[in-house]
Design a protein around this nucleic acid. Structure first.
Lengths: 205, 205
DNA sequence: TCATATATACTGACTGTTTAGTATGTAAAA
DNA sequence: TTTTACATACTAAACAGTCAGTATATATGA
């Protein structure tokens, strides 16, 4: 009788972590439907039995990745910005710095979340509600931030916060995807700086 | 012996067009690897024989879509902007108007190109060079436009044209993907206006 | 402390299904 | 009567997931 593993030994914990890491890498490379279970087991150096001992399905692997993104990136971001004492300048500054640093050190997690969302949202996949919930949470967070920025007369008064939040998320997604596609050509530092400048001050003089 | 179809009759032309249209729709919905040939034939109301009479493989279907995007959207855009007599203001205005109108009337083509690129670029897929070539062409076009804008002192002098072009493309992609994901909630008109304003003038006062 | 028992952490062959693509048949048009 | 434009029936490979069995770690009792 199958029972879901609650890992005890170090060895076992390391195995399941290796599987998850490789899954993330290959999902990013080939997409969810383009990745086979055998691709993952091969890369992780385990057999199918091991994978299905730790995870009950391919979908569960995906869910774990999505959960990790929500917990580590989004919840971390919200908390970090909340902790800032200061005006909206400081908070937006923190937003950019957190974002850039986290994406830099967790590139695979961030980009795979984004591309997997692009692949699976709208596809009637089981994880769609989870993706949508996370995007909604992100939008709500940004929307509040922008509202505050308008109150403090730092952001333009004619901007609709919900819409602007959506657009910032769109920018964020696009930036990540392009970063992945052109990884060899992009100087990350300059990329983020330019992104930030355009978003806050625009292209025009 | 199989020979590639060069459609003659109206009937046949309509069939292949129906197959391609449905392929685009379902690729967009489920992704390339998530879509089966049977999904497409069912939706198009034909059998496998018909599909493989008109197209030699699943990959060819994809290539046709990518070609159509390049020819109709990108080449059309470049030509339209080239035809503008006026300064960079007028050219960028044309860029936005063309972009918005084309995306609006060819939503499936634009969004499916973008999401398929996100799924397949980096996946060692046969169409990768084609995708890359098109993105490169788009970047070169925008980069020239920005350079001109800098000469005319309309864009900020400290902006790197190649990098800014990449970022505009990133914005463009992100905007399309988000439009697809939140199609029911978004007022297209306001969305495009806000996008344009943020990109040109920024969020800040 | 050493045998016994039991839960954990796998192995790798196997299953049924789905997949892209093919081979063959056929009706209608040219 | 030959070519076009399909339909039908098929194949081989790939797929996600299962299962019987096994090795290893840990807990328990003599």
């Amino acid at each position: 009788m199958r029972q879901l593993a609650s890992p005890k030994t170090l060895q076992s914990k390391e195995t399941s972590h290796r599987i998850l890491t490789q899954a993330m890498r290959i999902f990013l490379e080939k997409g969810y439907h383009g990745t086979s279970i055998d691709d993952i087991t091969q890369a992780a150096g385990v057999t199918k039995g091991a994978l299905y001992w730790h995870f009950k399905s391919k979908e569960e692997l995906l869910k774990k990745i999505v959960e990790e993104f929500e917990r580590r990136f989004l919840d971390g971001l919200i908390q970090a910005v909340k902790d800032v004492r200061g005006d909206i300048h400081d908070k937006f500054g923190k937003y950019f710095r957190y974002n850039a640093a986290f994406s830099y050190y967790n590139r695979e997690l961030c980009v795979s979340f984004t591309t997997l969302a692009a692949e699976l949202v709208g596809a009637h996949h089981g994880t769609e509600p989870q993706f949508r919930r996370i995007y909604k949470k992100y939008q709500t967070f940004l929307s509040r931030l922008i509202r505050q920025g308008k109150k403090e007369k730092i952001f333009k008064k004619e901007i609709d916060p919900d819409l602007a939040a959506l657009i910032i998320i769109a920018f964020h997604d696009g930036i990540l995807i392009r970063w992945f596609m052109n990884q060899n050509e992009i100087d990350g530092e300059a990329y983020v700086q330019t992104f930030r400048k355009i978003m806050l001050k625009g292209l025009m003089v």
